[in-house]
Design a protein around this nucleic acid. Sequence first.
DNA 1: GTTAGCACTCCCAATCTTTGAGTGCTAACG
DNA 2: CGTTAGCACTCAAAGATTGGGAGTGCTAAC
Lengths: 359, 359
Amino acid sequence: MNDEIDLSQRKKQILFQAVEDYIENANPITSGAMVSKSETTLSSATLRNELNALEQMGYLKQLHTSSGRVPTTKGYRFFVNTIKDSCRADIEGLLKIKNVFETRTINLTELIKVIADKVSEVTDYPTVISLGGIDKLEILSIKIIPLMTEQALMLIETPRGLLNNTLELKQNFDEQSCFDAGRVLTNKFKSMTIGQMIENIENKHQEILNELSEYANFFEYVLQSLIKLTKQYEKEGIYSKGATKLLKNPEYQNVEQAKDVLSLLEDKEELRNLIEDDSDCDIAFTIGDELNDNRLSECTIAKAHCKINGENIASVGIIGPKRMDYAKISGALKFIVDEFKKTDLLELHGNNKKGDKYD
Amino acid sequence: MNDEIDLSQRKKQILFQAVEDYIENANPITSGAMVSKSETTLSSATLRNELNALEQMGYLKQLHTSSGRVPTTKGYRFFVNTIKDSCRADIEGLLKIKNVFETRTINLTELIKVIADKVSEVTDYPTVISLGGIDKLEILSIKIIPLMTEQALMLIETPRGLLNNTLELKQNFDEQSCFDAGRVLTNKFKSMTIGQMIENIENKHQEILNELSEYANFFEYVLQSLIKLTKQYEKEGIYSKGATKLLKNPEYQNVEQAKDVLSLLEDKEELRNLIEDDSDCDIAFTIGDELNDNRLSECTIAKAHCKINGENIASVGIIGPKRMDYAKISGALKFIVDEFKKTDLLELHGNNKKGDKYD
DNA sequence: GTTAGCACTCCCAATCTTTGAGTGCTAACG
DNA sequence: CGTTAGCACTCAAAGATTGGGAGTGCTAAC
């Protein structure tokens, strides 16, 4: 697959410049233009030979005889691998994001929206952020508050903030029973994750029922509620912004082409599948055919995984044409990933004294 | 303005058929086509005379000599006024919506999303729903629950469900103080609206501070929180779906034209301004120039105001080309409005016994 | 290995032509 | 007087033709 080693130093340089120029101007690469633009001492004939060789090797392709050449996916891939570590961020725009991180007591769901908005603004590409599911969240405490007829609110405190959901109790409970039930549940499930709690409930159902004795009533409702909550977050924790910015690019002047991508950007479920993956690396580009989706054959997706305290919290995706500004995107994503790394979830919610909780 | 009275019965019929046909086929109306399609006994020459007259009167216009005619805004307006009461709903699709209304304990914010999704699916046009602000909501009770360090959760029960927001207390309070504070606040503000409560707090600040004595501490935070909450709902209570469906229409085959409308559909703030108005009527169409927005000169917006117990709860907007299927849209909107009318908010939240609240 | 030179390819834009759908007008008809 | 057949006129849209020019590949000379 990777035969970039076969490339002479000169070929590498030519290919790099060719792709770079194409990304900037969207004009097919020609030997003549390269002579006049770059500071090369080579003649156009020599460049033609080299470009021809690069085409044979699959890095470039011609649209027709006597047209300039355009990068193939392989060509873009070479380019991306080369610039991997050089980024060119719009510092000014990104600094605004920094402020957001420093705003305390911002809900994480809010946070990703603000970030997606800003990233899309700075990069000028559609941006998607998905929040990880809640199943890996640690439970800090559980509270139950009676509401109007036969309902109660279940509150679960987690390092990522407060989860809340209404319980359908089918029976009235008073303030005190609810309070006690919450305390019992907290004692039982504290410092498990939501996922573990569900698993635990499902596996040791009877056992726990006995253990919780008089609060067993709540128990069924809590389980149902947790499952509903998990599904809901799966569905809601995804946000996208700036879809129409795609239309600015010359590759989407044709409505037919744009339609596919735009409707994909409207479908949260598909977006989630697209953005999430288990890759370990912080930032990755997937180019054109590499995406294995006809609708996206002319797109590149840049993905980044944001971690707080080492835990995967959110995934950011930037969707653009293959001809996207890789260095800029790379810079923006690196910035976001770093900001997340520096952040402590508890701080996000205004708790500067970790571990100093009370219940 | 309205000189539809001047139209002979025959002209009305011709104009109606002309617009109807144009809406269906997007082909300019020609005398020849009208003869072959409709069961008229008139000759094409006579129709030409009539069409010419209708053009003089401003209902139709020609794109150029020797082309067929196209409806003007005035022509569409005539058409809409004529079909006002005939609707042609996709009953099957809409019945699915009915089920949603019957699902209890669905959050109103969730409800509008599901409805927008379905309406967009059934009509095949972008659909926007905005939820009214929270300021007119009646307060049923206020609860305060202590959370982790120096924070508490404020819960306000309203007929539209539970509002919640985190309070930054800057000081720890125990379970009991919070509980008591909630009770005091409830007694003071119960059955006011959120708006009245804010107003009240702002006007009689000192007075209330004295009255609440030991819970005065909470008071400032509650005020701030309420204001924040009001703003937040203003921003969040709007949802749109199906923007890309616009691209199916021949009038948006040109990216430049589509871009404007699509980016408008992405901007929640603009959408809100567009959808909300104070008009009393349940369903209204605003056509092309009537919208007073260049970007929308080729669009029609259908708006409906949904009321529960007489109170304006949500506004639905359907955006399409001027050539939209008015009868179908009208049917769909009427259905939604009626469903809302039949709904009791308390029932939505699972309370079948109204007034049977406890605190 | 590099490059000047040249034949060759083929897109693109401009121009022109043709076609035909559709109109407006007029004169005749019942 | 409303209706209609007939005809001249208009004009967009779709081909056909053309020339220009940008770009290539190849070859032969450096």
